[in-house]
Amino acid sequence: MTTALETRNLVKRFGGLVATNDVTISFQQGMRYALIGPNGAGKTTLVNLLTGVLRPTSGSVMLEGQDITGMSPFQRVRSGLARTFQINQLFPEMTPLETVGLAVSERQGHGREWWRLAGSKSEVIDEAAAILERFGLTDAMGVPTKVLPYGKQRLLEIAVAIACRPRVLLLDEPAAGVPEEERHEILDIVSGLPNDVTVLLIEHDMDLVFSFAQRIAVLVNGGLFMEGAAKDVAADPRVREVYLGEGGHG
C-alpha cells in the first residue's frame, strides 16, 4: 500500500498559541479517513496547512512522496490535492456548467488559452457534462449558482473538487447545513467517490463518520490523539472520554 498524503512533525504556532502540535500522520492511497476532534482541536488549521492556505512553523507535508510544504494552494491542486469548503466557496454569478467546465479546463491545462472560445473543446465539455450528470446537476447546469437550492450548491461544491480529478480529496463537513431531506444525496455522492481517490473527511456528525470512514484520526488540542481503524477508535475509552463523552457534536 502506498502513502498518498503524509505530514511530518507538523507544527503551527500563532504567537504563543500552538494550533497544530507536532502532527505526524500518513494517509494510505484509496482509503477513507475521517478527521474528528472537539471544537478548537485544530482541524481547520490542519486542513489549511495541508491545502497550503497556511505555511507551517515547522515540519513538512508530503504528497505521494513529494515535498509540497513550499507549494501554494493552486500548485497543490494541480499536484492532485483538492478540497471542498465548509462554507460554500462558489462563483455566485457563474452557472454550474461554467464552474465545473472551468475546473476541468484548468486541470487539462487549457486555462491560459485566450485565443479560442470556452466550450469549443469536446474533452472539456464531455467530462464536465459527465460530472454534472453524476451529481444530478444537469437540469440546473445553465442557471446561476446563486439561485440554486442550498443542497444543490453543496453538491456543486463537491463536483468542482472532483473535476480537479484529485488523488487526495479533503471534504470539509460536506453535509453541513443541508436539510435532512436533501442529505442522502450528499451521502450517496460521498460514498460513491471513485475508489482510487484517498478521501479525508472532516466531520462532526458521528453517524456520517462511522458509516463512511475506514480509519479515523482524532485531534485534540492541536495534537494527533490517536489514529486507527474506525471500530478501534470507536471502542477506545480515551476517545470516548475526550470527544464522544462530551456529547459527540461538541
Partner: peptide, 13 residues
C-alpha cells in the same frame, strides 16, 4: 459521451 454534452456545448457557446 454524456447525454448532456450537446446541451452543455450549446449553453457555453
Amino acid at each position: 459521451q454524456a447525454p448532456a454534452a450537446p446541451a452543455a456545448r450549446r449553453l457555453l457557446i
